[in-house]
Design a protein around this nucleic acid. Structure first.
Lengths: 216, 216
DNA sequence: CCTACCGATCGGTAGG
DNA sequence: CCTACCGATCGGTAGG
């Protein structure tokens, strides 16, 4: 009983520590940025030595990349999956937006949305992390565009709406709701985002000002 | 001619250096953030010693605050004044939005809008700079709200529109256009912001879905 | 996972 | 504005 504790469902101490470090890294990075992360700070946070923490990642870049991967799983669990849990079509589009706003409102990360932080932090500087941020943001836009196209096929959104443009017009209030709620320490600002999403979707439901008629 | 060069229109070497440091600080901060600014980096940039640079500000916080003040002047010159140069009313609201988008498109700062960078960087952390960011963002929102109220008084926007809400719905695409243009190194993304602004304003021009009639 | 160490850099000070 | 310095911390390595 003392030696053979290799049961796969039982995490080793090393894995637990590794996970605890990433947990702290996500929290800290959401507040102070991923560049502001230092190994010494993390070591203090989890009660280990600096090189003990370092040994888990062997470079700061890998620490940052693993932190992004861990945050990505949380984003999936807290936003993407609950959002897509709605019936296909417009309901899913609304579901995703609401899932994001709820995730901001519930303060899943103490410094607001981890990926909104990353967007602003790594929009300008070149490098491996910039490229990961591009991929993540393109994924978010592609997800929204896909939901919009489906809703159009189902006749729930006007066919002349440009999916990329509408995705941008939904993405924008989601992001700003995150920044403002964090800046003002006031989660109720998220309701501004909710109203903005409703307005944008309403205007895309029957946008036929040009006089062109639906295609199918 | 050699000694008496105290003409007021002639900047002293000290003032010139001071301005050059702030110039470099704004550029660097727009790319890598105001926390990423280091005195050593600035010293290299302007060709001075670290303590030579330091002597100009006497603390890092004051360097950061003077950098914000200098960027604020540029924002005024490049966005606020040209924006308000339009005739009073709706044209001014559209003018301000266009001035911001143009300022992003022209890459006035190499890392995108200085204050969008600040918003994301200091939304979560407490401190003197957080408080300055709150003030700046509230100023931006108040400016938009004021233009909206004026346009409503002139009958150019529907009276039942909530000025704070519409300001949020305009602010959002401005910010996202900045982040996306910077992230994708593609100023044409700013056109997405332009279309979003047009859509939001169009929907606020005759928003009378509820059936209530104009007040005056 | 630790101690002990590397060179570099940080913000800031002393003294001129 | 400079040189020279302070203690602290950085990312990373050696060796165990």
């Amino acid at each position: 009983m003392d030696e053979a504790r290799n049961e796969p469902q039982r995490r080793s101490d090393g894995e637990q520590t590794h996970a605890a470090i990433l947990e702290a890294a996500m929290r800290l990075a959401s507040v102070e940025g991923l560049s502001g992360l230092t190994i010494g700070r993390l070591a203090r946070e989890v009660g280990a030595s600096r090189s003990g923490v370092f040994a888990h990642f062997r470079s700061k870049l890998r620490l940052q990349q693993e932190t992004i991967a861990a945050a990505s799983e949380i984003f999936d669990r807290e936003v993407v999956r609950p959002g897509l849990d709605a019936p296909e079509g417009l309901a899913q589009l609304e579901g995703f937006c609401e899932a994001y706003l709820s995730y901001v409102e519930r303060e899943v990360f103490p410094g607001g949305c981890f990926f909104a932080q990353l967007l602003a932090e790594f929009d300008a500087p070149d490098g491996a992390i910039h490229d990961e941020v591009v991929t993540f943001q393109q994924g978010g836009m592609a997800l929204l565009e896909g939901l919009i196209v489906t809703a159009q096929r189902r006749g729930e959104l006007a066919p002349e709406v440009d999916p990329g443009q509408l995705a941008f017009e939904l993405y924008a209030p989601l992001e700003l709701a995150n920044y403002f709620a964090t800046l003002h320490r006031d989660p109720t600002i998220v309701d501004r985002g909710r109203r903005a999403v409703r307005t944008a979707i309403a205007s895309a439901r029957l946008r036929d000002r040009t006089g062109s008629s639906p295609a199918s």
